[in-house]
Amino acid sequence: MDYLSADLQGRLEYDRLEGLLRPSTKLLVGTHASNLTGNLLDVRRMSAFAQKHGLVFLLDAAQTAGSTPIDMEEMGVHLLAFTGHKGLMGPQGTGGLCMAPGVELRPLLSGGTGVRSFEEDQPREYPEHLEAGTLNGHGLSGLGAAVDFILETGVETIHAHERSLTERFVEGLRELDGVTIYGDFSGDRAPVVALNLEGWDPASAADELSVQYDLAVRPGIHCAPRMHRALGTQDTGCLRFSFGWYTTEEDIDAALAALREMTQ
Rank of each mutant, 00 (worst) to 15 (best):
Y3S: 07
S5Q: 12
L8G: 12
G10A: 15
R11H: 03
E18F: 07
P23E: 01
P23M: 04
S24M: 10
K26Y: 10
K26P: 01
V29H: 12
T31D: 13
H32K: 08
H32A: 08
H32Q: 11
A33G: 08
N35K: 08
D42N: 09
R45Y: 15
M46A: 11
A48M: 11
F49K: 02
K52G: 05
L58P: 04
L59P: 02
T64K: 07
T68H: 06
I70K: 07
M72D: 03
E74K: 13
G76W: 11
G76R: 08
T83F: 02
G84R: 01
L88G: 03
L88E: 04
M89G: 10
G96C: 01
L97G: 09
L97Y: 06
C98P: 06
R106D: 13
R106W: 13
L108V: 14
L109T: 14
S110T: 10
G111N: 10
G111E: 05
S117R: 12
S117W: 13
F118G: 14
F118M: 15
E125Q: 13
E125T: 11
E128N: 14
E128S: 14
L130K: 00
T134F: 11
L135G: 05
H138L: 13
A146H: 02
V147W: 05
D148P: 11
L151Y: 10
T157V: 08
I158M: 00
H159I: 12
H159L: 13
E162N: 14
E167H: 12
V179H: 00
V179N: 06
Y182N: 01
G183F: 00
G183H: 07
D184C: 11
F185I: 14
A190C: 12
V193D: 04
L195H: 01
N196G: 08
L197W: 05
W200F: 06
D201V: 04
D201M: 00
D207N: 10
V211L: 14
D214E: 15
L215Y: 07
V217C: 01
G220E: 03
R226P: 00
H228C: 12
R229D: 12
G232T: 07
L239T: 04
L239G: 00
Y246H: 13
T248R: 00
E250M: 00
E250W: 09
A255P: 05
A257N: 11
A257V: 09
E261K: 06
T263R: 00
Q264S: 14
